[in-house]
Amino acid sequence: MSTPRKLRVATVSLAGCFGCHMSLLDIDEHVFALLDKVELDRSPLTDLKTCGPCDIGLVEGGVCNSENVHVLREFRAQCKTLVAMGACAINGGLPAQRNHLDVGQCLSAVFQSRPGMDTAEVPDDPELPLPLDKVHPIHEVVRVDYFLPGCPPSGEAIWQFISDLLAGRTPRVSYPLLHFD
């Protein structure tokens, strides 16, 4: 019998802190079992900059700027199954705590009105993606197939979730692995 095709998996951190990716690495020795079954496409772990056709996309972080929107749309277009991984992808998380403030005022507070920076300009290099006025959970921008809560989800929760997905089961993270914090 031929060995089953490896599943292609892409991962990305949008407006996140890479905590979910750290937690993904926290699955310890399961990493070997995982790498037996999957091949990584675009991911901070491969440093590939574009995403090819994939079976699974894991998205950490919400959408806070124009580049996040493009990357998220690329993931949706390329990944058969798209997963919102962690609090920020699911509800905006920490970055969304700026949502009740005006983004212009946030920028000038950070770059212009801090002691010692009062003559600085808000950076406007054309390479910098423009911030959105609000930070959005990813399901407000694209269709999302599954949600894996946690800030970050524990390695154990991630492993259980991915194992379900790889085995073709509907992934389920229930008590006591289900956490919003």
Binding site: I90, G92, A96, N99, K134, E140, F147, S174, Y175
Partner: peptide
């Protein structure tokens, strides 16, 4: 929300 396995807020946030 844990008991009822609510994994997503699903709707648009009001913030």
């Amino acid at each position: 929300a844990y008991d009822l396995e609510m994994t997503t807020p699903r709707f648009r946030h009001f913030f």
